[in-house]
Design a protein around this nucleic acid. Structure first.
Length: 342
DNA sequence: GGCCGACCTGA
DNA sequence: CAGGTCGGC
């Protein structure tokens, strides 16, 4: 939600319509060169004129959010002070202020002030761009209609034709048309990597996105599941061809998702366990877990435990986690350590 | 083929 | 600083 500080700071002045990104992607639709009245005033926040009003639109995964600015200054009852935590509310409000000023000048009622008062969806927002404060005054009644009584929600529904189900149309168009299917895969979410990054995926965001693209374009939707019926080594080889998928991740997918019970994922913990209890000769000489080491450890466990080696490995792995170690075990370890000391 | 730094976040 | 993969050496 870091791109929606405005939403979280001023929830009272925003209204929403349920709508998924696959039905309408504002960033794509408003910048694709077929409409010229919208400006991106902040990341993913679009301001423009529609039905004689200034609007700001933005969206989350399942809603379109909208707010409008009008010129009537009716009396207010409540006063709420809000100090914004970062620059975004200020910037957005300042942009709204600018839009209002332009609209006022256009109508020849130039009342230029530093502190602008803007009526927003039944609330009046006082903006002071110089000190980053925003005040919201509530009106007694909130209406969601424009001057001629048209519901604002209906204006947007009509403008974006939200009553037409785009997803089923895409399915229909793609059914016989391979080229459309390919093109359509780039939509509805061209910002996947960015959004994954915002979710904390870090440098892996690029890999996840690229792998997903590769799977859809090269292999098709059912390919991953079909690997359940392919021998372990083959499934592993194909998985490792995906960007960001190395030996360990491929083995994890094989073991956890593709029924390959013999797959033994070797991460640093399993490596430590192997050195401590099974293969002491791997000792401290080896600094990094190379492909050769990985194979040696995997083969060793496979020979030791047989076709369900992966399951056995996960038992050892879990028992090595601190949260599964009983206090009793800890006491035994401490006693051993004490014995060693003396 | 092996080694190591870069990538990014959370702890 | 750990966590796994990649690319350059």
């Amino acid at each position: 939600m870091q791109h929606h500080a405005v939403l979280s700071a001023l929830t009272t002045v925003w209204r929403s319509i349920p709508c998924s990104r696959s039905e309408l992607n504002l960033d794509v639709v408003l910048s694709c060169g077929q409409s010229f009245r919208w400006k991106q005033i902040n990341p993913s926040h679009w301001t423009g004129v529609l039905a004689s009003q200034v609007w700001t639109l933005t969206q989350t995964d399942d809603h379109i959010w909208y707010t409008t600015y009008c010129l009537d200054g009716e009396e207010n009852v409540d006063l709420v002070g809000l100090e914004s935590q970062n620059m975004e509310p200020k910037q957005s409000a300042t942009s709204a202020h600018r839009e209002l000023k332009i609209e006022r000048e256009r109508r020849g009622c130039c009342k230029n002030t530093v502190d602008a008062e803007i009526s927003c969806m039944g609330k009046t927002v006082t903006v002071n761009p110089s000190n980053n404060f925003i005040f919201v005054k509530s009106k007694k009644t909130e209406d969601d209609c424009d001057k001629v009584g048209r519901k604002k929600q209906d204006i947007l529904m009509d403008y974006f034709q939200l009553n037409v189900e785009l997803e089923s149309l895409y399915k229909q168009w793609g059914k016989e048309d391979l080229h459309f299917r390919r093109v359509a895969q780039e939509f509805p979410a061209p910002d996947v990597e960015e959004r994954l990054k915002n979710l904390g995926f870090g440098y892996r965001a690029k890999f996840v996105n690229q792998s997903a693209q590769t799977i859809l374009e090269k292999h098709g939707y059912d390919w991953l599941v079909s690997l359940r019926c392919v021998p372990y080594e083959d499934a592993r080889t194909m998985l490792r061809a995906l960007p960001g998928v190395g030996a360990k991740v491929a083995d994890c997918v094989c073991l956890m998702s593709l029924d390959k019970t013999e797959a033994v994922p070797v991460d640093t913990h399993v490596w430590q366990i192997a050195k401590r209890h099974y293969l002491p000769h791997l000792g401290s000489d080896n600094k990094t877990l190379t492909d050769r080491l990985y194979k040696e450890i995997g083969n060793y466990f496979h020979n030791l435990w047989g076709p369900y080696a992966g399951w056995a490995q996960s038992v050892l792995f879990c028992s090595d986690l601190k949260k599964f170690q009983s206090p009793k075990t800890d006491e035994v370890t401490r006693q051993k350590k004490r014995r060693k000391l003396y």
